[in-house]
Design a protein around this nucleic acid. Sequence first.
RNA 1: GGAUCCGUAGUGAAGUGGUUAUCACGCCUCCCUGUCACGGAGGAGAUCGCCGGUUCAAAUCCGGUCGGGUCCGCCA
Length: 582
Amino acid sequence: MRTYVANTMQQVGQSVTVKGWVQSRRDHGGLIFIDVRDHTGIAQLAIRPEQAQAFALAEQLRDEFVISATGTVRDRAEGLKNPHIPTGGIEIKVDDLTILNRSEPLPIQIQGEAMANEELRLKYRYLDLRRPKMQATLKKRAAFYKYIREYMEAGDFTEVTTPILANSSPEGARDFLVPSRVHQGKFYALPQAPQQFKQLLMVGGVARYYQIATCFRDEDPRADRLYGDFYQLDLEMSFVEDGEEVRTTMEPLIKRLVTEFGGKTLLSEDIPRIPFEEAMDRFGSDKPDLRFGMELVDLKTELQSTEFGVFKNAACVKAICVKSGASLSRSQIDKFTDTAKSEGAGGLAYLTFEDGDVKSPIAKFLKAEEVEAIKSKTGATDGDIVLFGADSRAVVNKVLGRLRSEFANHFELKDPNVVALAWIVDFPFYEWDEKAKKLDFGHNPFSMPKGGEAALVGNESDDDKLKIVADQYDMVMNGYEICSGAVRNHNPDVMYKMFGALGYDTAYVDAKFGAMINAFKFGAPPHAGCAFGLDRIFMVLQSEDNIREVVAFPKNGSGIDTMMNSPTPVEPAQLKELGIQI
RNA sequence: GGAUCCGUAGUGAAGUGGUUAUCACGCCUCCCUGUCACGGAGGAGAUCGCCGGUUCAAAUCCGGUCGGGUCCGCCA
């Protein structure tokens, strides 16, 4: 029978068999030590020439050979103990050794810190997973799911699985299409989210639904966004009064995941509700990191009569004050300027307050009282730097919002042990699509406008429509969007009107969302819900800044699985059977 | 689709125009009875991602290309 390495400590004086991998071999000529590793830890084997067969085999061992060793557990003498590992007080005097499998030298290092070369780690992920940190991550993730399920079950949510072979949906992300052999020329699509199914469950009388759902999106990845498939805690509740009911139902879970499960500290037990417009004004982002201040300050009023052209001609002038930022070197400021430009800024104007004086390339364009007003409004004191954005409101927010985050990184203001949560509410229903020069849905076309059908009355112009607020909410965790939800539109008439406002007629809505719109005609209860991005939440809880670190087999940044070599071409015969030509 | 950074033995790194490209780990041979990232002696292993250009001379400078990271677009 096999004894786990971690349990050998309790078996002193007894014979045990341990099985695992060779972590290291220390061959002293007449005495060989083997560190054997299993999923519970590392223990030392001692093999002497008296056990001739075992000794001969031990001489052949190399790193990562798979072995079984039987021997007696015994206490180590004083001075021979290893304080660095839990089993350091004992060792196993081996009588019998078996090589279960051999191993070539590993193409990656699995001891110590993770290698910088992620490409190789992913190609040999099955080896990378032997790393204790990765082992711990997989176990922790299983516990994470269990914790969530227990909360949902206790909250009277019913887990329902929904189809993986679903329909292509015209809005949103690019679909993964799946050809049908039986119905040639027709395609399924992998669900970007179980959105329509869960709403149909509401119509079907499921009071509270949840699912740890696999979602599929064929969009370019980011450090915090996986390519291809990822996991959401998807949920929906019927007969809710408003979005607040969903938020207060789910908020305790997230708080407990942060504290009880994740062992981190909440910035505040009180989770703020911040309207979208306010978030954009104060933080320049709809997913602000609230662990630090450095809020955007509007200076248009203070600078209304300025002669400085850059400020005078801009629709919007805002600034952020970076505490102790006067210490930044010229080249550091140049780097932040490049960042600002990449976000659409023409440049990056700034004022440095140092030695009771103000220093800046633009100081000569500003009147003394203007500098004073800026200093006062931004709260700048000696040693600070104030940086400006002057452009359209959208550009200013984007630039300063990005800089706010970058400066926080630079000055290490993001405490990794603290988690700041916020609900961003009241998203605009429609957005102006600058490329297409027309209105489009902001977030989710299935949301209820705040005020219901009445919100649409009298709003004929694009400007009016842009003011319509959706009953939509995101949860934000340390600057990451971790949840998106809404009170859904369960009224077919309102649905037709919301699409109609963008020029889509009834026939279009019926064609694209026929099942749902039809279902809503048969007594659909009011309902609301949301979906939490589980990979991303887990990433933050694990203090990782790359989401691939918390996933067993992620695709790389090009959407390729270099380990399995997918995607791959397929046999012509397979294509023919599906009626597909490339 | 765009921007930007990176690419040097199996692995991780050093090397910013000039002898035979340096180091650590790993690998091979030998020695070693208390190590624990054991130690000692010796050895093999790199057309410096690829192609082209500049130069008397290129890992190094320039252009292109391929691969990877990050960001923008995109992600209802």
